[in-house]
Simulated scan of single mutants.
Amino acid sequence: MNDSAEHPLHETLLHDALHAHVRESGGHAAGAHLVGLADDALRVARRRQRLARAGVGVAAVAVAATAWVAVAHGATPGAHVVGPATGGGSGNTGKAAPVSILPVISSTEHACTHGSGGYTQHGSATQPAFCVHADRSRGMTGVRVASAKAEKSTVDGTWQVEVTLSPADRTRFAALTGSIAAAPVPRNEFAIVIDGRLWGTPYVASAVTGGRFEIVGANVGDLTGATAQDLALRLDPGK
């Protein structure tokens, strides 16, 4: 197993173990500090793997292929672009935005063409755009999260939104992530879709049992403080 897969697995196990310990011990300050360190280590490990994956994706077509997203009622599928909210105002309507968590089938190194049914993950100065396809029939759709909070990493200063699922969805999420963990890249990833847009494709190395995941955008640094706060409010208007 290479470093990009091995390290995140260790960090994920540590992350879940520390969170469970702090919950059982009443969430004392020292434990909360350790949890924060584990959270940051897990984010860094995942980002390192995404960057490594991008380099491999350029060289190997097997890392970036295409597939399909199911569309109800025979509607013509379109291409969806990763796009954090922009402009002034939070767009908070008082109603929580549902989240879809969909297993990635494949992706190709180019923006999606119209009618492909894929989600375009925009490129950056160092990473090309990808067209991501996911399996809606096997995923979790219409999920209302238990909580969402915007936070700034103490390691690299980037913004993310930490999402916590309800107990019932936590069980489903553990089953979904467990079912894809052993698959080759990119089928060990899940697509986070909100308001019809792709907000990231985290990968997993083992079942995620803690019921939490982070949204950081398609590329590191995509989210600003404003867009992270906006997204957290859209997912959890009661904050």
Score class of each variant (00 low, 15 high):
S4T: 01
A5M: 14
L9V: 07
H10Y: 12
E11L: 08
L13I: 12
L18Q: 11
R23N: 12
S25H: 15
A29T: 15
A30D: 14
V35M: 00
G36W: 01
D40S: 12
A41P: 03
R43L: 03
A45R: 02
Q49V: 06
R50G: 02
L51K: 13
R53K: 11
A54M: 08
A62W: 01
A65M: 04
A65F: 00
T66V: 03
A67W: 01
W68Q: 12
G78R: 15
H80R: 14
G88P: 15
G91E: 01
G91T: 00
T93Y: 07
A97S: 12
V104L: 00
E109I: 00
A111G: 03
C112T: 08
T120M: 00
H122P: 02
H122F: 08
C131M: 02
G139C: 01
T141P: 07
G142K: 10
A148Y: 02
E151Y: 10
K152F: 00
G157C: 08
S166N: 03
D169P: 12
A175N: 15
R187Q: 12
N188K: 06
E189R: 04
E189P: 07
A191M: 09
G196L: 05
W199H: 15
V204G: 09
S206A: 15
V208F: 07
F213A: 02
E214D: 15
G217F: 00
N219Q: 14
D222G: 03
D222Q: 08
L235G: 06
